[in-house]
């Protein structure tokens, strides 16, 4: 690790710790309230806190934190069974998949025929 960067980091960490032992109370707190800038709260933020607190929730509701080591999950909820295997790379053909494809094609054609039969006007 770069020594210069480590020194800078240690300085930063020391400054971050500087306020830790300083327990603010009484006049200090009053002074700080006057002097510190107001980091405005959005309506959404205030609403969320009021709703949660009044409902008795001890912790703020928030979105799930994503695991840093996991890739973003790909939702397959809308994908029907077996379809994921149909789009293969060149050279990655699979006899079972080909057979299934043929079957699906056949069924699809048969369905069309059935529908056509149903829609067809009865002949005299």
């Amino acid at each position: 690790m770069n020594e210069k960067h480590d020194k800078a980091w240690n300085d930063l960490a020391k400054r971050a710790r500087a306020g830790e032992r300083h327990v603010v109370g009484g006049k200090d707190a009053e002074r700080l309230l006057r002097e510190l800038p107001d980091e405005r709260m959005s309506e959404t933020e205030v609403d969320a806190i009021v709703r949660g607190v009044v409902a008795g929730q001890t912790m703020r509701e928030k979105a799930d934190v994503q695991d840093v080591n996991q890739p973003s999950p790909t939702s397959t909820a809308g994908v029907e069974e077996d379809v994921l295997q149909l789009n293969r790379n060149k050279g990655g053909e699979d006899a079972d998949a080909e057979s299934l494809l043929d079957e699906l094609r056949r069924e699809a054609l048969e369905d069309d025929d059935d529908e056509e039969d149903e829609d067809r006007e009865p002949r005299d």
Partner: peptide, 15 residues
């Protein structure tokens, strides 16, 4: 609320 957020940033820094 905004003052408290500001206080926390000021007092605890990067912690």
């Amino acid at each position: 609320g905004g003052k408290v957020k500001s206080f926390l940033r000021w007092k605890y820094g990067g912690q």
